[in-house]
Computed example of a mutant assay.
Amino acid sequence: MTRTAVVTGASSGIGAATARRLAADGFTVVLAARREDRLAELADELGATYVVCDTTDATAVAELATAVGDTLDVLVNNAGGALGADPVAEASVADWKTMFDVNVIGTLQVTQALLPALVASGNGLLLNVTSTAAHEAYVGGSGYTVTKAGVSVLTRTLRQELLGQPVRVTELAPGMVATEEFGLRRFGGDQARRDATYAGVPGPLSAADVADTVGWIASLPWHVNIDLLVLKPRDQASQTQINRSQG
């Protein structure tokens, strides 16, 4: 029996890697993101389908739900991002609003739209990708930590509200993942600041590492729920304790 998975933020990084892993595991994958050129290329590679979808746009999310249909086995809410690393006193309110819209409201809207299909599958998995930043405040985390903490609370609330329903609910919180676009967007395209984030770290996580973890969670039997999985590289003990011995 063919299983279907939706991955948001699928045009690059963790989302694209997750789509590849789930496709390799036999899922029919529906890719969702804003950049059609990248979606079309990945869909062609995987034999997947795609929907151009800005998760903050309720109309676009409704179109995604229509494309998915009546049943869905796995939803990976991965779309999100960080903007800036300024202290709270100097942070951009506009950046905070953007992060809240993308990280929290986007996750909420996609979840609301696709939850009936997850329930209808009889064995759904709702997986929200957050961050270790959701669980540890740090200087420079600012709005990113606030919004990711919000998604963490949203996930735990759903776990309680869906008790007795045929849906597993998981929060996956990766630590340092060396993807190109995440850091570049956070620092306004400043390659040097992006590179400095990972400087000297012997082995930051890759997008594929996170995707492999998603694949493992999706493979578990219906009665096993991973409430929270924190995934860090060996060389990261906390948001600020990082081994940079190769620097």
Rank of each mutant, 00 (worst) to 15 (best):
L228H: 07
P174T: 14
G150T: 08
V177L: 01
G203Y: 03
V177K: 00
T213Y: 02
K232R: 13
Q165E: 08
V177S: 00
D195Q: 12
Q241E: 14
L172A: 10
G189P: 11
T170H: 02
V177D: 00
L162Y: 13
L162S: 06
L163D: 15
L231P: 00
P221M: 12
T170R: 01
L162N: 03
I217V: 15
S142G: 15
R168E: 15
V139M: 12
W222V: 11
P204H: 01
T213A: 12
V146L: 13
A196W: 04
D235R: 11
D212W: 04
G164I: 14
Q239E: 15
A196L: 08
G164S: 12
G150L: 11
S152N: 09
A192Y: 09
L162C: 14
F182P: 01
T170F: 00
G203Q: 11
P166T: 12
H223I: 09
E180M: 01
P166I: 08
Q239M: 15
A208W: 10
R159N: 03
T170E: 03
V139T: 07
T179F: 05
G164V: 09
D227L: 07
A207K: 02
G150H: 10
S206N: 07
G183A: 12
Q241T: 13
Q241W: 14
E161F: 05
R156N: 14
L184Q: 09
L231F: 02
Q236V: 07
I226Y: 01
N225L: 09
W216K: 00
Y198N: 07
M176R: 02
V177E: 00
H223Y: 14
V146K: 13
L231K: 02
L172T: 10
A218C: 15
D209L: 01
A237E: 11
T155M: 08
S238F: 08
A192L: 08
T157A: 10
D212I: 04
L205R: 02
L220R: 14
I226K: 02
G183R: 00
T157H: 14
R185I: 09
V139S: 15
Y144W: 10
Q191V: 09
A208D: 13
L220W: 05
G150C: 14
L162T: 06
K232C: 08
P166G: 11
L184V: 06
T147Y: 03
P204W: 01
L205E: 02
V177Y: 00
T157K: 10
